[in-house]
Amino acid sequence: MPIVSTSTSAFYDRSTMDIADLRKRAEGLQADLSRGQRISRSSDDPVGASRLRQLQRAESLSQIDITNAAKATSDLQLTDGALSSLADYVIRLQELTTQAASGTMTGSIRAGIGTEIEAIRNNIIQLANSRDSAGNALFGGQSSGAAYTVDSAGNASYQGTATAGDLPLGDGQNVTRALTGPEVFGTTGGPNDLLAQLKTLADALKAGGAGAQQAAQDGLTALSQSLDTITTAQTVVGSRLSWIDLTTERRTNLSELRAQEESDVGGTDIAATVAKLQETMTVLEASQASFTKLAGLSLFRLLN
């Protein structure tokens, strides 16, 4: 009887284990269908799991590049808007200076023009101290304070850094996020210093005298050069924005390729998994039915 009892116990244990294994396999297939992934842990497919981790790290790094691209785009768009406003100011200054350069203008009219030029200069200084998307000086390079300061005599001087700084866009590509004050308004104290030239022009027109008309004529040359500088700066900003668009398009394509590879490596093959699940469920039902019939035979009842 001990041999018979042992055999009966082994039959039940083996049947229970087989049915439990089939149920576990069916539950696993159902879980794969539910989450759309066939790899839930590294042991399921060590090579595939390793590749998935690589793809996920690459995607995480790509998100950093996306953030940098968005910041650079925002700052460059702010720069482009400021340049457009500056161009409008310079065009208005050219109109006023052309009037002042005319020999028919009286001293009082030139003085009035000088006052308006002074007001526009103050607006340009405010524009030069615009803020970027992070609240730092837009034209101040990498400094956080004001790009320009004005002393008690009304002279404006640049306080920012020499470069605006680069932002990485991925794959070793970078973009300069903005322009510095000297690149737009000229070097402080240099021959192309727009703010200094406007102060000289406004002071000369308000003072009047024989030199006022000549100052206006000289101012026209300076303003024409300034407008050329602004146009060049707008071209530079536009090319940088186009570069960001190109890198963004490439990053999007790479992201789509990674997503496709993730699906190929770790994704669930719906058709194959459904077929396996149906097969497993059929075997499970057959095993349960067989176990029930065998356990119900009279021989087993007698042996027990």
Rank of each mutant, 00 (worst) to 15 (best):
P2D: 15
T8W: 00
R14L: 11
A20G: 12
A26Y: 02
G28Y: 05
R41P: 02
S42A: 15
D44Q: 07
A49W: 03
L55D: 05
L55Y: 09
R57M: 06
Q63W: 01
Q63T: 14
T67G: 12
A70S: 12
S74P: 00
L83K: 05
L86P: 02
A87C: 06
I91F: 05
E95A: 13
T104V: 13
G107Y: 01
N122E: 12
I124L: 03
L127R: 00
N129A: 05
R131H: 09
S144W: 00
T149V: 13
V150R: 04
D151L: 05
N155Y: 03
N155V: 13
A156L: 00
D166T: 15
V175N: 00
T176L: 02
L179Y: 02
L179F: 11
L179Q: 07
G189M: 07
A196V: 01
T200S: 13
A202R: 00
A204M: 01
Q217T: 12
L223I: 12
T231V: 14
W243E: 15
L257F: 10
A259M: 08
Q260N: 14
E262T: 14
T268C: 10
A272F: 01
T273L: 02
T282C: 06
A286M: 08
Q288H: 04
K293Y: 12
A295M: 10
G296P: 00
